[in-house]
Every structure is written in C-alpha cells, then in structure tokens.
Design a protein around this nucleic acid. Sequence first.
DNA 1: AATCGTACCAACCGCTGCTAG
DNA 2: ACTAGCAGCGGTTGGTACGAT
Length: 241
Amino acid sequence: MAQEEMRKGPWTEQEDLQLAFYVNLFGDRRWDFLAKVSGLRRTGKSCRLRWVNYLHPGLKRGKMTTQEERLILELHSKWGNRWSRIAMKLPGRTDNEIKNYWRTHMRKKAQDERKHKASISPSSSFSNSSSFSSNSPDVDFMPITENNERNFYDTGGLEKKNDGDNNEKGKSTMKVYPMDEIWKDIELSQESETIMNIEPIMPSPIWNYCPNTLWMTDEEETKMFPQFYCLDNQDNTFLAG
DNA sequence: AATCGTACCAACCGCTGCTAG
DNA sequence: ACTAGCAGCGGTTGGTACGAT
C-alpha cells in the first residue's frame, strides 16, 4: 500500500467500530498487523493511539475529580512528566488525558502565580531560582518557559538524571515532597482500585454504541458486521476486509 | 451578532527502548 | 553482537467549543 493513502485526522464512528472489532478479535498487540488486516487506512501507531486513548473499555470519561487532581499534582511532584506512570495510578485515565489536563490547568496556575508574584514584588523575576524554592508543589514544578523561562513541561532534567525510578538519586537534586505516608497508601490500594472512591469504570462510546458486539460469538459478529468480517464457509478461515 | 481569547481534547510526530531474528 | 521492526512515551499541534467583550 502506498504511504500516501494512509488516512489522518479525526476518526469516524465507522473506523472506531472497525478498530474495536478487530482489536477484540486479535487483541491489542501487533498494531501494524491490526491496521492492515482491519482494512483501515491508518498506521498501526494511529490505531494504537485511538484504542488506548479513546476506545479502550476501561476508560473513565468526564471531569477529573478533586482527588484525581490532587493525586496528579502530587505524583507529578514526585515523578515529573512521567505521564504513563502517573496514569497507572489513575485507573481509567490515560497518559494523554493527564498530560492535557496538566497542560491546561497547571499552566493557568503558573500564570496566576506569575501575576500574584508580580503584584507582590514587581521587580522579582519568575526565572529567579528563589521563585521555585517554595514547598508548594504548585510552584515547584513550574519549569522555565520561553526566554530563559522554564519550559512548562520540562522538569529541568531531573527526570532524565533520575530516570524514573525512585528518587534515591533524585532526593539530592529534587525537593522531596513529604508524601511518604500517602505513597504507601497509594501502593497498598493500587490493586483494589479504591484510591479515591473511583466510580465504576464507564464504558467508552464504542461500547455504548454497540455494547454487546465486542463479546459476541463469531456467528453474532458476522451478522453484525458483514462488511468487516466474513468466514469462509468452506474451511472456516477468517477473511479480512 | 461578531470577534476574540481561552480551555479542552484528539491526534500526530519524533524519539527511545525492547525484542526477535 | 548486531539490526530491523515494533510498541510505547512524551512533546507538540490543530481543531472545536464556549465564554467574555
């Protein structure tokens, strides 16, 4: 297939259905294979992203709760921009969602903080390191942006140095947020998914749209999606596309 | 009603790490 | 040991909705 025929941009409902169907059929691995066999003119990468961020049945949709917000804040103060890792502690939330949330909400906080500081001390620069010496995580994580300011996302290289795992090294360079007890609780409660009274996992739109199709028998599936799927009656082999 | 700015979300891109051959 | 292909991650961008002016 020529590369130029690959589709880009927003997914259609039809594509969603098609992808969900084939993921159910073959599992959420081998995305390039899935992309090909499904007949979708999408890259495997694109399919994976769509599945992970939108179609996955475990996704929780809607606004972040205050508990989630707090958790994100705290986890970010601990791990920096390790979105996927943070997402692991927030069942039903994707790294992309958390990343977007952080970008919008925390940037606003940063702006508010700047205004506040400017109003208190007009001569003080935000890039002054003293601006980051507060124990408030709201301020601590604010990286320098353009023109000698911290990039909003950039955690100042701390994460690279620490490279993830637990901050024994990081403690020397990164302020330790006194959350030990909370982390213990989080670790303990991770399995039970009762970290913050999480509501039952909501079905994704594809499940709402077609709630039974993904767990159908082959026969039911072929009836439901004859355009996507057919069985060769002679040898019961799967015929894609 | 029109315009503008902001918030939010979905999706793409580039890079990295892993793994099978 | 090396390499190619794939999956995953983080950063960024573009589109849309919505509220303020």
